[in-house]
């Protein structure tokens, strides 16, 4: 029987080695490209068909999703400041959602189940918040390490705690998405393995569970994309407002 972790393996499809760097095209890269193509393609299709005041099916879906993301950004960052982050947050949300959903198609690859991918997102967001914070407040940004209303004696204790909690943010962001996707897909693989190896009179039971859990995984794909982007908004909002 196959290992339930088999479908997380990365296979090289087109090997490319340039100056000692492994730039090979593998199944993870292809899954990522498909995700990008779906997100970019659906928007291009909607625009090339012409934006009409009475939206068609595709246009209404895209409008609702953008509307939803924009209200989320305005809620956590604020309307004036949030405007310029809407495109970034929208791309992030739609790309993660597309990758999560692609992974649910049997035989495809879940790119968000790789810690390297979610980690790259999270570290990028962490650096972005630092850049925004220092750009906006200059050296006053370091004041984020001292919460308001803290007595002076407590400051030497609070600063290390705040540094740890700042560093924990990108890691919890990355680990949450990675762990949820990996766990869900492993459960699916184990149940499917049970269904395939068991006799027919028993095998239908785990097979039924895979169908139910697939439904749950669709919900989790949405929820995880939502949590990831909400927390990105919260972190950006925190460094802009500085308490």
């Amino acid at each position: 029987m196959e290992s339930p972790l088999h479908h997380f393996e990365v296979h090289t499809i087109i090997p490319i080695h340039i100056a000692g760097l492994d730039l090979s095209i593998n199944n993870a890269v292809v899954a990522m490209w498909v995700g990008l193509a779906i997100v970019a393609g659906s928007f291009m299709l909607a625009v090339s068909r012409g934006i009409s005041p009475i939206p068609g099916k595709l246009q209404s879906i895209l409008e609702i999703s953008l509307e939803f993301i924009r209200s989320m950004v305005y809620e956590f960052i604020g309307e004036d400041e949030g405007k310029k982050y809407v495109p970034f947050i929208a791309s992030l949300f739609l790309f993660i959602l597309a990758c999560n959903l692609i992974g649910l198609i049997p035989g495809s690859y879940t790119i968000t189940s790789q810690l390297a991918v979610t980690g790259a997102f999270a570290v990028g967001i962490f650096i972005l918040t630092l850049v925004i914070g220092f750009g906006k407040h200059g050296m006053h940004f370091l004041g984020i390490l001292v919460p308001p209303g803290v007595p002076k004696i407590m400051i030497p204790l609070m600063v290390p705690i705040e540094i740890i909690s700042m560093l924990a943010r990108p890691i919890s962001l990355a680990v949450r998405l990675f762990a949820n996707m990996t766990a869900g897909h492993t459960v699916l693989a184990v149940l499917f393995g049970l269904a395939m190896t068991g006799p027919l009179w028993l095998g239908w039971l785990p097979f039924g569970f895979t169908i139910v859990i697939n439904g749950l995984e669709i919900a989790i794909a949405f929820i995880q994309a939502y949590i990831f982007t909400t927390l990105t908004c919260v972190y950006i909002g925190d460094v802009i407002k500085l308490h």
């Binding site: 890691i171 919890s172 995880q224 949590i227």
Partner: peptide, 15 residues
């Protein structure tokens, strides 16, 4: 509800 469940658990562990 799902957001709370998923969020608070990892927060404590990771820190």
């Amino acid at each position: 509800g799902m957001q709370i469940a998923f969020r608070l658990g990892t927060e404590l562990t990771v820190a």
